[in-house]
Design a protein around this nucleic acid. Structure first.
Lengths: 223, 223, 223, 223
DNA sequence: GATGAATGAGCCTTCATTCAT
DNA sequence: CATGAATGAAGGCTCATTCAT
């Protein structure tokens, strides 16, 4: 298993540059991404075979490889899409000109609703499950997703701290706390597979409201 | 995957006297569990082959199957051990007769120190990664671990709420919030593989202190 | 196809040392080598699948990989065997104490008989066919086989040149020439697949005799 | 692999008028042959994919199939071209009216220079490597190449034997011996991949001179 | 006629699991 | 009981070849 490192690649690695044509039909690409996302979410990364993906996406296995270099790249593409999809529009909610409690409430609702969605939970599960072996995927995902949100919240808090409305010594830490506290353990339970349905709206509302109240009072929010 | 478990030993049982049918040497069992834990933590569930386990545990592959029905059962056994190992002693810290802030501080320190350990993070990662396909493992793990802690904290809070020292409408929810705020995102980052070393003690202290302060003030703790 | 060099191996290459147990039953090893040799000779390296080999050797495909790291190593093992099998005993024929013409006649007969055997031709064919992509295999084969013979003959000629019985300015070159002339194109034709049966003995004799006469007269052999 | 070759064009033939059915642009054909030759020589038959060929020839893969029925036919076309390219002009050197030693020297130089060229070696390698599975390709190649040369030399020798200048009992055999002996093992080593650069002119000269001298003296050439 | 895209078949390799010893 | 050896099944990936445009 170790001696072959030098000799095996000889046979194929000689082939140089120029990939096969790099599938460019965006529609088909979508079809593949959607099908792959569906089945990856259902089975996890390792337990999903490329045949499964092909079946789920209704294309031939070979076509998969026209659009994506390999299984890992396909998966990474899905992750990237998943995190980037709505983050931007969510961050836009952090409007410093609106009243803080309402902004954070709305923002929290958005975040929690998204995070608790089964498909999103599934994506996080996979990334976490794979993080040991492929730390770059995990880090990248974390940084472009959760961390980006935390940073935005921290910046938002900075503003209000400067304005004297909040007493927060470490806004970065506070932002992380905020993101956790509004979840009330709801996402965590789902991560472990305890629950699988999207939570009812009132439960989300309750958790966000409770967490937000705790946060505001705890950091001495002065209307 | 589970069907053939009862039939094989039967033959042996018939031939010999009342000898214990399957692997019962507790020392060897330990050896296997330790080796398996080590390698599972390093590679994850799917990426670890039974050959890897055998090598890591220094036993033959066949012996593995004498002590554990299959890969999944072996893994489950490790998880069970992992969660149960220290939970009990940690819960004992929640002594209602000691001053609340100190109890929660000490308890939080314990919890966070444990959760941030690489091997523990690895175990959680695996369970989460596997939760989609094997929800029972995930649920069981969650219930015997995180949930058990939450419940204990909730009960502890109940006591102080009853004593009028705390104003908490939903102690179960508050317990979950407590468990999250004290982490300050420290465990989450590790879950995604962003960091891998155990955090320095002062960082843990800072996070617990900050989270606890937030929690106490937010829930109107009155000394 | 090129970007994956760094990322793909991550998944598996993590596994370290200790191969699976390295099949050691020499009988089974023989069985595999023989079966593989048979089918490789029939179909060539690339056109022979490991399934073909397994079938031909009457073992499971997985067993193949217990005894040989991969297809290339299996093939190399066959080549090594093939060249080493009889070379030594043939070189022993070059006895400087026997009369030169008889020695070279006997030696030439041995060499040509062997080289014209279908299975040997097949081995050479494969090695040559593969030499572009795997030059080490080709070189190694050439050096351990043809070159070794040439060197031995050169040394043998040296002796007789020193004794004044032969007038050869470059014995290395002469040795190469000798090895070729005695074949009379017989091996070459077989290499290209023109003929496939082993040549009749008298044809071999004729070619060797003719080539040897040419060689001796050409290099002024003086009884 | 060969079955479907006649049926496809039929449809087109019916629809349109007397337009040439299959790829007839000789320029494009050249382009394909050259590109294919280049890459086949580099990688060998099996290791060269039709994508490689398409890339090397700068045409689409589908176009390849307009000009050549399949991979094998394309390859065969290249081989045919390769052998026929210069054989004729070389055979013309065998002028019975010129002094024999000079003719054979010049002829030998031409032959050996050509055979030792990397691209030519590569072609031979491929044909040999493929000969087991596709004996017609091998035979055809051998007959139109090496054998044709041998025959011409044999005929040339016949003339001089008849003129009493040479004492050769079997000119066919002698021709084969001549072709081999002038190579001095130079081509053989290259066939096995030991060397890859074209040999320097003086080395070629030396081998031819040595071989020719041996041949002439051995067959009693009388000026 | 030329091409980009698609695919069924098949390859090498590995894995979880089970016997015979 | 422990093990070395063996294997059926499956996985990721590529290829020669063919349509629709």
């Amino acid at each position: 298993m170790e001696g072959s490192q030098a000799s095996r690649p000889v046979m194929k690695e000689l082939r140089r540059g120029g990939r096969p044509a790099a599938g460019t039909d965006p529609q088909k690409r979508r079809q593949i991404l959607d099908g792959a996302h569906r089945i990856f979410s259902e089975l996890g990364f390792d337990a999903t075979s490329m045949s499964d993906v092909a079946r789920s996406a209704q294309v031939s296995k070979a076509t998969l490889y026209v659009y994506f270099q390999d299984k890992e790249h396909l998966f990474t593409a899905i992750c990237a899409e998943q995190r980037d999809r709505n983050v931007a529009e969510k961050l836009a909610l952090l409007d410093v000109n609106q009243p803080l409690p309402e902004v954070l409430a709305r923002f929290g609702m958005e975040i929690l609703s998204t995070l608790a969605q089964p498909l999103v939970v599934a994506a996080h599960r996979i990334v976490i499950g794979v993080a040991e072996r492929m730390p770059e995927i995990g880090s990248e995902f974390y940084e472009a997703g959760p961390l980006r949100v935390i940073n935005a919240v921290a910046q938002y808090l900075d503003h209000h701290v400067a304005a004297g409305r909040l007493n927060v010594p470490d806004t970065q830490l506070a932002a992380a706390q905020f993101c956790e506290v509004i979840q009330g353990g709801m996402v965590k339970a789902r991560l472990y597979g305890v629950l699988n349905e999207p939570p009812p709206r009132d439960e989300i509302e309750k958790n966000v409201a409770s967490g937000l109240a705790l946060f505001l009072k705890g950091y001495g929010f002065a209307g």
